[in-house]
Amino acid sequence: MTETQHQGVMAMVKIDGSKARQLREQKSLTQLYVATAVQVTTDTISRWENRRYPTIKRENALKLAEALEVALEEILETPPVPEPNDDEAESQQDSVNFQHEKERRTETVKQGVYVRWPILLLSSTIAALICLVGWVYFNMEDSPSVAVTAKRNLPAHCTPGQVFPVSIEVNVQSDEPLAFIVKEQLPDGFEAIQAAPALSSSGKKVNTLKWLQKGHGKHIFTYTTIMKDTTIEADEFSGGIAINKQSGASYSILGSDTIIVSDYHWADSNRDRVISDSEILTVYDQYGEVEVHGIDLDLIEEIWLGSGYTWNPDTQTYQILP
């Protein structure tokens, strides 16, 4: 292992960039995926792989190894092989002499024996074909099948300046846990407040959300957002899922994607200014156990217990009717 650490200085390690690139390509991983996992830029990954930065922080090397699904030692630079001493040199020379003698005897045998090369060539070809068919069959049987679906649950409407929730349900059907990235793009004029689980990273703008997860089966991602641009009348959300086993493949997030600006509460799905039994049950099913800022379950329950509500534009609040 090639590792350097001095007192008061961050631990550094020397990585083998070409080996890291080879492992990434063998696993069909993109530089974008690895960069997101390590939380650096794709340009940094490219510089590492091209040995522009052979020495990097140990914590980044550990993240890189985890993204490549290998141990740290597998991407470290191999120390140079020491020059052999006199005994080793003599042993190597003996090995060379033995190899030369073996080749000489083999050549003698070839000269004295009639080789039926057409039959041998045919036999070798048949054997190679059998191996090829077996390899293809084996890999087809063992290759994990992957099916990904993603659905967004978005309220039909929202009120400017009022926080509302959005949830994304992702189902990854595979034979083994897989790493995947969920990316959600909010429309201009909307700003994310909080998310559960916590965001792996966010873009330069507050309306780009990213989660990096590993697993299979059902996953729920929830976030709250607010519309700050009061001139918008309607807008669209968009997003997608990327899987590491399918380099370059992207699955769109389906379901609701358009929201209308109005003065109705987001939980009032039929816009009759009343929170019905069905509507409050839907809210609790979707967000009752989610701890993110902005889902005001107490207010929704008060509206449900009352006879309805109105929106007061002066105070920017909902008024509950007795």
Rank of each mutant, 00 (worst) to 15 (best):
A156G: 09
A156H: 12
A156C: 01
A156W: 12
H157P: 04
H157E: 01
C158N: 14
T159L: 07
P160M: 07
P160S: 11
G161H: 09
Q162E: 06
V163S: 05
P165T: 08
P165A: 12
V166A: 14
V166W: 00
I168L: 11
E169R: 13
V170Q: 05
N171M: 11
V172Q: 02
V172K: 02
P177L: 01
A179H: 09
A179T: 11
F180K: 03
F180Y: 13
V182H: 01
Q185Y: 10
Q185F: 07
L186D: 10
D188I: 03
G189F: 08
F190G: 06
E191R: 14
E191D: 11
A192M: 15
A195K: 08
A196G: 08
A198T: 12
S202F: 10
K204I: 13
K205M: 11
K205W: 05
K205F: 04
V206T: 15
N207I: 01
T208A: 05
T208D: 11
T208N: 10
L209A: 03
L209K: 02
K210E: 13
K210G: 00
W211S: 02
L212F: 12
L212V: 07
L212E: 07
G215W: 07
G215S: 01
G215R: 05
K218S: 12
H219K: 08
H219R: 07
H219C: 00
F221Y: 15
F221W: 08
Y223C: 08
T224I: 06
T225F: 00
T225N: 05
K228A: 00
K228Q: 09
K228P: 00
K228R: 14
T230W: 11
T230H: 13
T230Y: 12
I232E: 06
I232T: 11
D235F: 01
D235H: 06
D235A: 14
E236K: 12
E236W: 00
F237A: 03
F237Q: 03
F237V: 03
F237Y: 10
S238G: 10
G239H: 04
G240E: 13
A242H: 05
N244R: 09
K245A: 04
Q246A: 05
S247D: 03
Y251L: 06
I253E: 06
I253H: 08
G255F: 04
I260V: 08
I260F: 14
I260A: 14
S262R: 09
S269E: 10
R271G: 00
R271K: 12
R273G: 08
I275Q: 09
S276L: 01
S278H: 04
E279V: 06
L281H: 10
V283P: 11
Y284L: 15
D285T: 07
Q286F: 09
Q286R: 15
Q286S: 15
Y287N: 05
E289F: 09
E291H: 13
E291Q: 13
E291I: 09
E291L: 11
